[in-house]
């Protein structure tokens, strides 16, 4: 378990995030969807919120707070899905105009 609290873990996590962003960027180019800075900012914020939701669930289970994990997971999970859907529509809207 110590690995997940180490600096090396965050190094790996950073590489994975870079791959996700490069992959997303390539996908957007393929679909001819322009990605101005504000869209990237919104996307990164959404990614961070999803990451927070996942880490919150894990931490709550680790603390033996299953109730908090479930309730927090549902609340933050719903927020993630709704905001993700909204963000996707914004991104797609840009594509239609293009």
């Amino acid at each position: 378990m110590q690995f997940f609290n180490s600096g090396f873990f965050w190094f790996i996590e950073g590489i994975l995030l870079c791959i996700v962003i490069i992959s997303f960027s390539s996908w957007m180019k393929e679909k001819n969807i322009p990605m101005p800075l504000w869209k990237w900012a919104a996307f990164i914020i959404w990614i961070l919120f999803v990451g927070f939701t996942i880490a919150f669930i894990g931490t709550s289970f680790g603390e033996n707070e299953a109730n908090a994990a479930v309730k927090g997971g549902i609340l933050f999970g719903i927020i993630s899905i709704i905001s993700g859907a909204g963000l996707w529509r914004l991104i797609i809207t840009g594509a239609r105009r293009a």
Partner: peptide, 10 residues
């Protein structure tokens, strides 16, 4: 990894 990080932190 984030889920495991969270669990390890907990």
């Amino acid at each position: 990894g984030l889920a495991m990080f969270g669990y390890a932190a907990g």
